[in-house]
Design a protein around this nucleic acid. Sequence first.
RNA 1: GAGGACGUAGCUCAGCUGGUUAGAGCAUCAGAUUGUGGUUCUGAGGGUCGUGGGUUCGAGCCCCAUCUUCCUCCCCA
Length: 454
Amino acid sequence: MAVNVSIPKGTRDFSPAEMIRRKYIFQTVEDVFRLYGYLPIETPAMENLSTLTGKYGEEGDRLIFKILNSGNYLEGISVEDIQNSSTAKLAARMCEKALRYDLTVPFARYVVQNRNEIAFPFKRYQIQPVWRADRPQKGRYREFYQCDVDVIGSNSLLNEVELIQIIDAVFQQLGLNITIKLNNRKILSGIAEVIGAPDKIIDITIAIDKIDKIGIEKVNQELESKGLTQAAIEKLQPILYLSGSNEEKTEKISGIIGGTDIGQKGIAELSSIFDFLKNIRLKTSVELDLTLARGLNYYTGAIFEVKANDVAMGSICGGGRYDDLTGIFGLPDVSGVGVSFGADRICDVMNELKLFPENAEISTQLLFTNHGEAEMIYALKALAEIRRAGISSELYPDNAKLKKQFSYADARKIPYVASGGSTEMQEDCFTLKNMQTGAMEKKSSQEIIAQLKK
RNA sequence: GAGGACGUAGCUCAGCUGGUUAGAGCAUCAGAUUGUGGUUCUGAGGGUCGUGGGUUCGAGCCCCAUCUUCCUCCCCA
């Protein structure tokens, strides 16, 4: 036997049973996207490395899978280059392509490249795998599927509201209890400005994002280590302690950062989203969470995150508004907003909660047993007839022992087995066995169709 | 990038303070039963104990290295 075969770290094979579950999620998500008027696109698995670098922050750049140039990838690189350049610089010279890290940046590139053919506002969805050179662990893979919905070319906050509706609809259909967390980058910028550290916005947001995990003490320590003054940290405290209803929180934060232009804008956006939501019946609660930061650099307005209520798992859906992502590629003043559903994590959560229907993997309804040449032709005729009636059915390919053929039906959870031997051939019928009850009855192919159509 | 745990049959695992030929359950295949599965009984196949090195008369077990998987941090879907 055996060479030791395996697949790369953080990647997975999917069995038929798993694929049925995954397809169920993809189908649900896609149906909702279509219902809201979004259209599908796909982009290549690989992009030019330069398209991707610099969009995801320092950490993100490190996690991009790079593709070594074909041919002599060392061409033009000297020993001194290797000794003196950073690995990132060398990688840029040896790798002009990379695997996509998310679907938003390739989408922005697509929009810029096809701007003349696109009718704005452009509503698209995209369900494809992405790759990250991260260290795998629970709910974290190196290859995983994102299901993105975005609308680009519209500043209206209605889009944010629509995305919240989509999130609500998807998870309601999947039967998952979730919480939608909402925040706004402008509010975070306002906070940074008020406490006199506008350049520290990223450090601040990353630190306060951790408040649930590591507690206020450690957050303050981290802020200090990032070079924030004691006075600034002091000013930040009431914001970290904020509690109450969304309105109460909005009011309090408004009192603190309402003086800044950017802060005021952020609050206005947030309030108008909440105003919209009052008129819509949602099953899920939307919660203002000022500690929600999200690391991706390109967000400028609303930011979303969805967590499953009953399972410990990272976010299963996230996104936000990006005002200038296309600007980087030469198409300024086009704002977009979108969210991404993490299909793999959703699948993990649903598995843990046993939310998948038990008999989802039943595909074949009827198996014909095989008794030899003449009987095979006899069965084949009926098989074609039954398939024309839309009943998924198959004929066992080998004249094996019946025990084996029935075991196969059993293993495949096929509910009915039809046998046609010499006796049945004379009467122009089959013996149909109900595998659950064990009952057997002689039936013509038409009667079989009638029975299984029920 | 930092830290921790695991690795024995296709799968889940047992294997005593180091001691003959490494076990069990499930799965697979065959038979009991030559046109009827899921229950039962009998039998069979399947292992360089993750890999490499070391200690020892002797290593699945101890030591070192390495790889993998899982988990935590960082970050994220």
